[in-house]
Design a binder for these strands. Structure first.
Lengths: 192, 192
DNA sequence: CGACTTTTGTACAGTACGTTCCAGAACTGG
DNA sequence: CCAGTTCTGGAACGTACTGTACAAAAGTCG
């Protein structure tokens, strides 16, 4: 009971997520958050408590919608290598097409010293582990079908791939050299 | 002529670098910089102009002292693989030993949206290219000696390694799992 | 020594920050 | 329709921020 909310919580968190993604934690002001969500300060603090808690909520939302694009690519038909390549190429395309170079919010949150509390680090880590497991499963499938080399365990192969993948996104932050990024992709895939 | 500086410019930039490294650009205050350098605001602004310019100076200083440890490891005797392994293991050790998880300042600067001007991105990019070239040279040596596979070009191999290396440092920001990081290392090396 | 130049510390300006507070609005259950 | 509850928008608060002003200090050169 009481007066009902005039806004949609999820939409507000989503709008906040976009700002944090673009500017990082510290550089995002409460004013930015009010403008992007369309809420007054009262509503914002009443609903989310603090800038920090809203940041956590934004990261949790990212953990829901962020992997959707990834998973959609990885679940397409085709060989394991082709699907992993598609994932990486897609990231390159996204990064190169974005003049702001926002990259991946989970990685940004993991790297951003100002916003990194143990909770934030844990949220980012969880997403890392989730990707690791997804890839690990694919590696196991590829190995048992004979497509991939079995000299490494699936887990080791997954961790190796994941690392190259994150490195790719770091490089994507500062380079325009698509060919260099494609080198990374082909180098990574030929190692599997 | 005029009154001489009472402080050492390099030492001041170094102190500033440590703060930016620990807290990131936006979260570092001019007060922090005064305290860490021991300078008053007057001296600080007289000598460096602005927080942003000091940040650039700090990153330039990092580009001098940061690679020293890396190069020292890579120039030691031994096979190419052993030296690359030593580099990665050293990074894992450094990251795990640091409760603040400062990581690599060049990577942090590349990722930090708040401090990333085109100049900063370029400075970070330059360091990335420098490492790429160093590794590329090692790859060429390893390939011509027969130690490493020649199925990839040295440049492609270097870019691939570099990417895995950066990914390793991203993972090192949020995990305590040394075994996972060692998996990355061995997975990367076995691909060369 | 004395004109000139640069550095130093501090006080200050002006703004912007995260958060709290509150009066009134909007709704519910009785 | 009234008492109770929650939400809203914005004003208000205290603090902290980057950057400037300036007078005194500490040198140099003739």
């Amino acid at each position: 009971m009481g007066r009902p909310r005039e806004f949609d919580d999820t939409a507000a968190v989503h709008a906040a997520m976009e700002v944090f993604w673009r500017k990082g934690y510290e550089a995002t002001t409460t004013q930015d958050l009010c403008e992007s969500t369309g809420l007054g300060r009262g509503s914002l603090y009443n609903a989310f408590g603090s800038k920090r808690q809203l940041y956590e909520a934004a990261l949790r939302r990212y953990s829901v919608i962020g992997p959707q694009g990834q998973l959609e690519i990885l679940e397409r038909p085709g060989s394991v290598k082709d699907r992993l390549r598609a994932l990486m190429v897609w990231c390159v395309d996204v990064d190169m097409a974005d003049p702001e170079r926002r990259g991946c919010l989970a990685i940004n949150a993991a790297m951003d010293a100002s916003g990194r509390t143990s909770e934030i680090a844990e949220l980012a880590h969880k997403q890392f582990v989730r990707l690791e497991q997804t890839i690990c499963h694919m590696m196991a499938v590829g190995q048992s079908s004979g497509e991939l080399s079995s000299e490494r365990s699936p887990l080791q192969a997954a961790r190796f791939f994941q690392s190259a993948y994150y490195g790719l996104r770091v490089l994507g932050k500062v380079t325009d050299d698509r060919a260099a990024l494609l080198d990374v992709i082909e180098g990574t895939l030929s190692a599997l």
